[in-house]
Design a protein around this nucleic acid. Structure first.
Lengths: 190, 190
DNA sequence: CCAATTACTTAAGCTGGTTTAAGAAATTTA
DNA sequence: TAAATTTCTTAAACCAGCTTAAGTAATTGG
């Protein structure tokens, strides 16, 4: 819970009694590498905060291979927002890339919680504003740069993270085949 | 201002005095087709609500051509969130695709406004949650589908919108060349 | 600690989509 | 309403990145 409370305090102020309310309205879950929090077709009933570890959001494409849309490291929220917002069937899987500690806010608790602790509205608004900025930036890279440039940019920007995940996941996230990633790495190391 | 107030009332409730405060804290701007609200390199000092018309967010890529990241129709918010959040130089241009009526909330008014009208925190949080869901969905299409499939999906989903914009903008938004779009249209009409 | 599985590499052939260039159609402006 | 400009089309040559297939390295689990 420590990271979570610190994270909230970065964006707003929360009192001790409010923290207690928050604790009783959330669930802390420990999951193992490869465990699934959500499967395609299910209704996504929670929003997940990564206290420790790493999650990924992906779907299975027409060819039957996994396409990663997003990773979430410590202090990031992750959910299938379409499914979470509308209680519609999820389009994505959410899976642990490493052993994780996750804090979950259930959909049907969220409204009540935000009424009891209005300052959390500010917290979530700010967090979403930052996440949305990141997604605009992401689109800029996807559209504006070649696969080679995207790879270079990503590895230069997040060298530690690249060490944490298998290469085939990096390839999937960047939108290319593991074979091509292999070729690129060879080419760039020469 | 009508669409704007209606839009707020879809997500939260706002009182008459609050509406008055809101009116005095925002600016309604009329702009002509092709007018720019933001240029790359400037600090983006406002968030823009489209009361009427259509905006686009784009950047100029390495080859010197415009790459469209987003459109905003009636009832959508649009800004360069990275620049807006951090007062950093904008990465994008924002331009009117048609003559527009825009409601602008200045960055330095926003914090004050959200303190005076706390229910607006809820409004923006919900709006961002929907926008973020849309962007996850967008990424799914970008990654999972061929250019032809993206084109078919987009034209089937938003036939009226496709009529509103020039084809070269659609091509840019979908991430391909106008020449290829032309080829596709020919092929698909046969 | 060995077998099975999962992850990574290499290389040849292929294809979806780009580039280039030139002309036709539509829209804007005077 | 004609000239200027902007948008759209056609077609051929080209290439970045994919597919396929087969082999090697690293993990996992029994």
């Amino acid at each position: 819970m420590d990271n979570f409370i610190k994270h909230i305090n970065k964006f707003t102020t929360i009192s001790q009694p409010e923290i207690e309310t928050l604790k009783s309205a959330t669930k802390t879950i420990s999951i193992k590498k490869k465990d699934l929090l959500l499967k395609e077709g299910e209704i996504c009933r929670a929003n997940y905060f990564v206290e420790k570890g790493c999650l990924r959001l992906y779907f299975i494409n027409e060819k039957g291979s996994e396409q990663i849309i997003q990773f979430a490291l410590e202090n990031w929220w992750l959910t299938d927002y379409m499914s979470f917002n509308n209680s519609s069937p999820a389009q994505f899987y959410i899976q642990a890339v490493e052993d994780c500690t996750i804090i979950a806010i259930a959909r049907n608790e969220q409204d009540k919680l935000l009424t009891e602790i209005p300052t959390l509205e500010k917290y979530f608004r700010k967090v979403l504003q930052i996440a949305y900025a990141a997604s605009q930036n992401r689109l800029k890279f996807l559209y504006g740069y070649s696969k080679e440039e995207s790879y270079l940019h990503f590895t230069n920007s997040f060298p530690a993270f690249v060490q944490r995940i298998p290469q085939y996941m990096l390839a999937s996230y960047l939108g290319f085949t593991p074979e091509y990633l292999s070729e690129l790495r060879k080419k760039l190391s020469q």
